[in-house]
Design a protein around this nucleic acid. Structure first.
Lengths: 151, 151
DNA sequence: TGTGTCATGTCAAACGTTTGATAGTAAGTA
DNA sequence: TACTTACTATCAAACGTTTGACATGACACA
């Protein structure tokens, strides 16, 4: 019986859910980057701008936790976006050396342009699957996230 | 109407399938790394060993394509795994300066140990979802991959 | 028999991230 | 008030990957 399992290790591993998950995420991410490139933007920039847009005044450390990256990575991105005039740091009203992040008008504009591209990618997927299956997929993915998060 | 869409950009973006996909993949990957660390291995090593195991004699360039990384990244990993004695490069019988990759006994052992960990992560997920939903999820993910790949 | 074309593998440099360490600031506590 | 404790932000170094360029070797074709 052990022998059977041994022989199935190879092919079995390639048909795992986590493998399909990795491939799908990689494919989607690659497409996003490709579509975003003409706008002079990468997915990480879009994600950051979108996050700040949906929660204005977010601070760097909190943003790092939401995006699952290190604070330094956020700082690096923020510095770049700030130098482009798309994002600005403001002093936190209560904590002096804490910085709130806010979008500038240019930042909002860039974000909306990028969001159109991302929304289109989303649309391609949901149309191919059907809105019913797409909703099901989203629910299953969220369940995976919750399951794995406390494992 | 445009106004309505504008206001929905923020919250809408966070409920997208591609967002759920990213979060799930990130969570799964993080768990894998955490479980693999005690074995002195990272997910990239496991993936490479598993690929070579399932297709012995694979060459570097082909491996790079399968894993969606650059040949240089593969070479870097191969060099490390080779120095650990888990992988070996052999001269391709027909093409002299092409290198076939083969697992050593130590490599097979390490791969199996790692696979046990990965299989457990997979099991946690499939049990939480039920094997029925897990199969459905895998099918949906593959459909996403195929859809996005030629878009 | 040359010759062009393609693919593999390697080197070097640039880039972005993580890890580790440090300084500054606010809040809770003795 | 003084003193922890916790959190934020920043600097410096290490690490891994990508990008670009190059040499080698095999195959197809004139």
């Amino acid at each position: 019986m052990i022998g059977n399992q041994e022989e199935l290790v190879g092919p079995g591993a390639l048909s795992r859910v986590t493998w399909a998950l990795r491939r799908a995420e990689l494919a989607v991410q690659t497409l996003k980057e490709k579509r975003l490139r003409p706008l002079g933007m990468v997915a990480a920039h879009y994600t950051l701008l979108m996050s700040v847009h949906s929660e204005p005044g977010l601070i760097g450390a909190e943003l790092a936790r939401r995006l699952n990256v290190t604070p330094q990575a956020v700082a690096s991105l923020v510095t770049r976006l700030e130098s482009r005039g798309q994002l600005e740091r403001r002093e936190h009203p209560r904590h002096r050396h804490v910085q709130e992040l806010h979008l500038t008008d240019a930042g909002r504009e860039a974000m909306h342009a990028a969001d159109e591209v991302i929304a289109d990618v989303e649309r391609v997927i949901t149309e191919a699957l059907g809105s019913d299956a797409a909703g099901h997929l989203r629910a299953l993915l969220n369940q995976v996230t919750d399951t794995v998060r406390d494992a």
